[in-house]
């Protein structure tokens, strides 16, 4: 009786809760599109891209349906006809569907703290962080589910949906090329490949104009902060945002290890960023707080006042707003940059 096993479940549960809190602060590690609690104010000033203006679906001579589509993780979806009841299980897919003019066909979506466009907020939630309400999706009569790969949605729930005969496309964009591929795949699935091409074109155009404007310059040492509530979290080398920073003319500080987002404070100080971008500004982090961190006053970025907020959602959500994201990011890294206004 006296040997009390402290490894009883309460203790374990407490430990896990602690892990969960750590995981929350490491939200970017858990999700390629970390939700922010408040919409970022400067989004409104960013020029809106044309493709969200719902391209019309032009009838094409070759029939688009029935179709058999291969997804990003080896799965196959068989679509007998043009889907009319679509479920979107990633925030990016929701944006892509709206960009394709298929927003009114979405019958359920994943919980999203920064829904975009506005109409997306009205769609009922059928999934949350880490759980999918399979029963609800089946009862809605979904004829296409766009799910998130790389464990974004539980693989088990995806399997369950497929076993019940619901076509599921699993998308995961590790980089910009992957995002363009997913946009094209979703465009094909909803019967609007032309709209997808248009969105991809606007993103590629934005990338090209940013690359042209920053060409020849020395990459700016950039610390892109994802979270600093307990320890510092920035991009992993394989993070979507890392590539975005490079395209935008930055030299990103990363953890150095794939899949790891935590960065030692010493490493940040040694790196001496020229620009600090607060991707966690939406969580209430301010430039003054950054300046007040012990030892940070010596950093070039702090001395020159180059500590700026950034809307993390448009930079890292692999959807139509990447065109805005790359332009916003480029200007945040190189404030003097002059970019051509986006093509209409």
């Amino acid at each position: 009786m006296d040997a009390r096993p402290s490894r009883t479940l309460p203790a374990l549960a407490g430990l896990l809760l602690a892990c969960m809190l750590a995981a929350c602060s490491a939200a970017p590690a858990a999700s390629p599109t970390p939700p922010s609690t408040t919409p970022f104010p400067s989004t409104a000033s960013v020029p809106t891209e044309a493709p969200t203006a719902a391209p019309t679906e032009s009838p094409t001579p070759a029939p688009l349906f029935p179709a058999t589509l291969n997804d990003d993780e080896g799965g196959t979806a068989v679509l007998a006809a043009r889907p009319t009841k679509i479920v979107s299980l990633t925030p990016a897919a929701t944006e892509i569907l709206f960009g394709l003019g298929a927003g009114d066909r979405i019958v359920g979506k994943v919980e999203d703290f920064t829904p975009y466009p506005e109409a997306a907020a009205k769609i009922p939630d059928v999934a949350k962080f880490g759980s999918v309400d399979v029963e609800k999706i089946v009862s809605l009569g979904a004829d296409l589910v766009i799910a998130g790969g790389n464990n974004f949605n539980p693989p088990e729930s995806i399997k369950q949906l497929r076993d019940l005969g619901v076509p599921v496309l699993v998308v995961f964009a590790p980089d910009v090329a992957g995002a363009l591929k997913d946009i094209s795949l979703i465009g094909r699935a909803v019967g609007n490949p032309d709209g997808a091409a248009k969105i991809s074109g606007s993103i590629q155009g934005a990338m090209a104009s940013v690359k042209a404007a920053t060409a020849g310059g020395t990459p700016v040492r950039t610390y892109y902060e994802l979270d600093a509530s307990s320890g510092f979290f920035g991009p992993a080398p394989d993070y979507f945002g890392t590539e975005m920073i490079r395209i935008a003319g930055g030299d990103p500080l990363t953890s150095g290890t794939a899949g790891v987002y935590q960065i030692e404070a010493e490493k940040i100080l040694t790196f001496d960023p020229q620009v600090i971008l607060m991707g966690d500004a939406a969580y209430g982090v301010t430039a003054d707080q950054v300046k007040a961190r012990p030892g940070w006053g010596t950093l070039t970025a702090v001395k020159n006042g180059d500590v700026r907020p950034i809307d993390d959602v448009i930079v890292t959500r692999p959807g139509p707003r990447l065109a805005d994201g790359i332009r916003t990011l480029a200007v945040a890294i190189n404030p003097g940059l002059v970019l051509p206004s986006p093509a209409p």
Binding site: L16, C19, M20, A23, A26, A29, A30, S31, P32, F129, G130, S131, V132, V134, N150, N151, F152, P154, P155, E156, S157, K159, Q160, A236, A258, G259, V260, Y261
Partner: peptide
């Protein structure tokens, strides 16, 4: 674990989703 964290975590909490 990177993005696998949520899957590990939901396993740790237990459930009958799948």
């Amino acid at each position: 674990s990177g993005t696998g964290l949520r899957q590990i975590f939901s396993y740790l909490l237990g459930g009958f989703d799948g």
